[in-house]
Amino acid sequence: MADDDAPDFGVPVGLFQDLEDLKAQVTALTAQVRTLTSAADTGLDEASAEQEPDAADEEEEAGEEWRFPPFILLLDPPVYDDELRALIEWVEGLLVPGYLAEPSADARWCHLWFEHPVAVARLHACWLAWQELTNPATCGYTGPSVWHRDHLDPALRELRGSTGPFAGCTKSEHQIDHRLPGLVPSAWAMEER
């Protein structure tokens, strides 16, 4: 096929240049990864040849890797209690005075919110997001706005709504088990007729 007969796909010349630049960058990054990987492997082999790490060192390293707490519902009692205390301080010190107006039928709140597992889960997730999104080093200066829009506002709507975890609680009465689900008919079980 002659050059005159070649199909014209209408691809701009700049796109080909961009692709070539990307290929060059990928090649350079691949070479860097190989260099770093081989250096890390070599350093690891030398370190293991000098001495074997003991179990205490491995536990310290694992502890250092875990900088932020996991989701509260996954914690066992001693760690859960500490995390809950810290969450209570945050909720009572920041959320309640700063964001919660007087409870009403449309905007409920329970002063014993920490006895409602759904409330604890939602507020803990909101708190974890707050820890990350109020630090300009991790999220820039728009983090607080993102936290309000994506985390606080939806959490408060769910918690304080008429069908939320505080639906059975009033100013004078606290009720924990008002939302326990009843039996749900199974789609897999056929009724005998």
Score class of each variant (00 low, 15 high):
residue 67 R to W: 06
residue 127 W to C: 13
residue 98 G to N: 04
residue 101 A to V: 06
residue 1 M to G: 01
residue 155 A to F: 05
residue 137 A to S: 12
residue 114 F to Y: 15
residue 119 A to D: 06
residue 6 A to P: 06
residue 91 V to N: 10
residue 189 A to E: 13
residue 130 W to E: 12
residue 85 R to N: 13
residue 148 H to K: 14
residue 10 G to H: 08
residue 63 G to A: 15
residue 121 A to N: 09
residue 18 D to Y: 12
residue 183 L to T: 07
residue 8 D to G: 10
residue 100 L to W: 11
residue 2 A to W: 07
residue 156 L to M: 02
residue 95 L to V: 15
residue 166 F to H: 04
residue 93 G to C: 07
residue 147 W to A: 09
residue 169 C to P: 01
residue 67 R to N: 05
residue 23 K to G: 06
residue 111 H to I: 08
residue 50 E to I: 15
residue 175 Q to T: 13
residue 60 E to H: 15
residue 183 L to V: 08
residue 135 N to R: 12
residue 136 P to L: 09
residue 145 S to C: 11
residue 132 E to R: 06
residue 138 T to F: 11
residue 96 V to W: 01
residue 3 D to I: 04
residue 70 P to A: 07
residue 65 E to N: 11
residue 136 P to I: 06
residue 41 D to K: 00
residue 119 A to W: 00
residue 70 P to L: 09
residue 62 A to E: 12
residue 138 T to C: 03
residue 157 R to D: 12
residue 32 Q to P: 00
residue 76 D to R: 03
residue 154 P to G: 03
residue 188 W to C: 14
residue 165 P to V: 02
residue 98 G to P: 00
residue 112 L to S: 12
residue 75 L to W: 03
residue 113 W to N: 05
residue 145 S to Q: 10
residue 6 A to D: 14
residue 79 V to Q: 06
residue 81 D to A: 13
residue 82 D to K: 12
residue 188 W to L: 15
residue 181 P to W: 01
residue 143 G to I: 03
residue 52 E to T: 09
residue 72 I to S: 00
residue 67 R to F: 06
residue 109 W to F: 12
residue 140 G to P: 00
residue 49 A to P: 09
residue 95 L to F: 12
residue 179 R to H: 15
residue 56 A to Y: 07
residue 139 C to S: 12
residue 173 E to D: 00
residue 160 R to I: 10
residue 43 G to Q: 10
residue 87 L to G: 09
residue 99 Y to V: 04
residue 173 E to Q: 02
residue 68 F to L: 08
residue 188 W to T: 15
residue 138 T to Y: 05
residue 41 D to H: 00
residue 177 D to V: 03
